[in-house]
Write a protein that binds this DNA or RNA. Structure first.
Lengths: 205, 205
DNA sequence: ATACTAATGGCACCCAGTGCCGAATGGAAG
DNA sequence: CTTCCATTCGGCACTGGGTGCCATTAGTAT
């Protein structure tokens, strides 16, 4: 499963042994997203993608576990980034502030990548099959938040408080994303901050 | 599509015309849940279920749009119930209190149905394929909450506030469910109240 | 050249889901 | 009882995602 291979293109020092991979996850992802934009997700078969990338259908499934994983790229790496960011926050920062900061930071995207990311998210949240599949990815995201919260609160990550907090954060982030997709000119960071602020005000009744 | 037929067994006044359905959604659902409990969801094929129910594979798909829908029963009817309950709440009840009350009411289950419901939810939240599919069902649930909140706030249901609120409520409910599934003796209503209280306290920092 | 390693991709297979269409089952009209 | 009609049933063939198996290919090391 090259899906979890950290060195897909083979730049690392290791002299490389055996036949080299003929493509990369990123390459496949790119090819696929292009096809999706042209014909739509459902009308693009795995065979189409494999053909467009010049590999066999069977080989495709060695790079991605499923067609649904294509738009996600290397999500695990991003999660590691968030974990790292959370660990670097000072302990005297209130838990909520820390988590909010992490959510905002996690979703900060460089201006030049905005159109690209928009298209990706429009797919993920707009295509039912992808939206459904995304739940499994978001579960991993929630785990990151819950583990941090659990550590800070001195309770198991699986207990109610961390879990509820993680779910809430996911909800806030996704509703901000929905707004972002609808309003072409909106700024994601501002939407996130606004949504977080709203929640605080509404609950502090 | 008998899936949205309100009178599956034919008790309504209409004299019935043409051949009568040979089974019902509820019957199929029951048969399937039994098989799932025995062999597990993934190891039970639609053909198995159809055979156990004494119908053809093709006919199965006239009662349920997908294998994933089996554990859900008539979710739409329950949503109607929640809509109705929300509409009946007094207008001077603060929005948050109203929504919290509705969430708790929606998830109140008669004691005799607890074991059954536990098994259903254990499936829905434990089997990846079902968890993914559930996102689509929860979307409808969120819409109910968001529409009420939008009406109360005088803004479109699709705007940030109602959406964020609906997401948050879903998150709270699901984290309470997770606890409920882990702790055999826990009371769902208490868990929900506890989770909602927690959120209020944490955000009122 | 040989041996070893790793990726490729064809083939057959399973399963979910769908379109098509004739057969079965009922009530109502003659 | 027969005819007509509405509705469901279910077989058949097909698409498309995903997997196990295994021979083939393309590299490195000796």
């Amino acid at each position: 499963m090259p899906t979890d291979d950290g060195s897909p293109a083979g730049e690392s020092g290791a002299p490389r042994l055996g036949r080299r991979p003929s493509t990369t996850q990123a390459e496949l992802s790119h090819v696929a997203l292009t096809l999706f934009a042209e014909r739509g997700f459902d009308d693009t078969t795995v065979e189409d993608i494999a053909a467009a990338a010049g590999i066999g259908r069977r080989t495709f499934f060695r790079y991605f576990a499923s067609k649904n994983d294509l738009p996600w790229g290397d999500f695990e790496a991003q999660l590691d980034g968030m974990r790292h960011h959370l660990d670097g926050l000072p302990d005297d920062l209130p838990l909520m502030d820390a988590v909010c900061a992490a959510v905002i930071e996690f979703n900060r995207i460089p201006p030049e990548e905005v159109p690209w990311h928009r298209q990706r998210m429009r797919l993920l949240l707009g295509v039912p099959a992808l939206l459904a599949h995304s739940t499994l990815k978001f579960q991993a995201w929630r785990d990151v938040v819950a583990e941090y919260a659990g550590r800070r609160l001195g309770v198991p990550a699986g207990s109610l408080e961390p879990q509820a907090l993680a779910w809430t954060m996911l909800g806030i982030a996704l509703s901000a994303y929905e707004q972002w997709l609808v309003h072409e000119d909106a700024d994601l960071t501002e939407l996130l901050e606004s949504a977080l602020r709203m929640l605080g005000e509404r609950f502090a009744s």
